[in-house]
Write a protein that binds this DNA or RNA. Structure first.
Lengths: 150, 150
DNA sequence: CTAGGATTTAGAGCGTGCTCGAAGTCAGGC
DNA sequence: GCCTGACTTCGAGCACGCTCTAAATCCTAG
């Protein structure tokens, strides 16, 4: 009946056995579905394997949630799963690859800036159309721009 | 051998028979593939049926190109094909539906603004990561943030 | 101990937006 | 008139990112 598992926290600090959140709670906190959480894991987006109970159920710690949040933010900026996986590999490989991580992020930043510019540019068309329609409605005028004038 | 068909323009003004550009030239000018041009037509995005030669080949006029450009700009802002089709239906229906067109565009504008805000917000994470990696590289320091610290 | 909701897996399914292919037709320079 | 490259239709294929399913297992309140 609607378990919440708000971190029993019986042991000392963390990395214990039964500590951590259920996948449902992790999904709630990260804003993605449990399906997506499992999919991300299968897709190789995780940096550190999520802990499991004795029986094999996932138990998420804060670090896991934080990383998933990073993933969702990267996804929200349009980074493909494949690239996030690459990034996750670099991160979990540890030090020594900062240059590649930097290159990856800089490339993605360029993509995002380009996307922003494109959105902003094309927003002008939308604004223009809105202006036109507002004007016509205000004037009670009828349309005759894109109608079959042929 | 690489026909260009730069508007023979034999008749008076337009809407003639053999006037208009081939699909290849239309694709070149609008920046989409011929496949996509045909797909858009099939998908019901056209406002006015593209003219055809006696033999059934498409001949695009400037109005067609302009409309396709509108479609690509709407696509570039993330408007789904289905919504563009609806918009095209409204436009080709002629006057009297400005209110609905306006509502459609205003809703889309809101979507675009939300997307812009989301991109900009998540860009901060990217910038932060870039800062971090640049700092580490500058300091010659090694990574220890997302490494398996467990 | 038990009941029953939550979780597990691997794989299939889906929605979107193209992109391609096959087999046949057309157009226009020679 | 003919040859060849461009064009036609329309259904299949594809890449992506989830989303769902089924059958089995787990976990915990009672």
């Amino acid at each position: 009946m609607l378990e919440v598992r708000p971190q029993p926290e019986s042991g000392p600090a963390r990395s214990n056995a039964q500590a951590g959140l259920s996948i449902a709670e992790a999904a709630r906190r990260t804003g993605v579905s449990v399906h997506t959480l499992r999919y991300y894991e299968r897709a190789g987006l995780v940096v550190t394997p999520v802990e499991r109970t004795h029986g094999g159920q996932r138990r998420y710690c804060q670090l896991d949630l934080d990383w998933i949040t990073v993933c969702t933010k990267l996804r929200a900026t349009g980074m493909p799963i494949r690239v996030i996986r690459r990034y996750a590999q670099l991160v979990s490989a540890g030090h020594g690859n900062e240059r590649e991580r930097l290159a990856l992020m800089e490339a993605h930043r360029a993509d995002v800036l380009a996307k922003l510019a494109e959105l902003q540019e094309n927003l002008e068309l939308i604004d223009h159309k809105i202006d036109v329609y507002r004007g016509r409605l205000a004037a009670g005028d009828a349309d005759r721009l894109w109608a079959p004038t042929r």
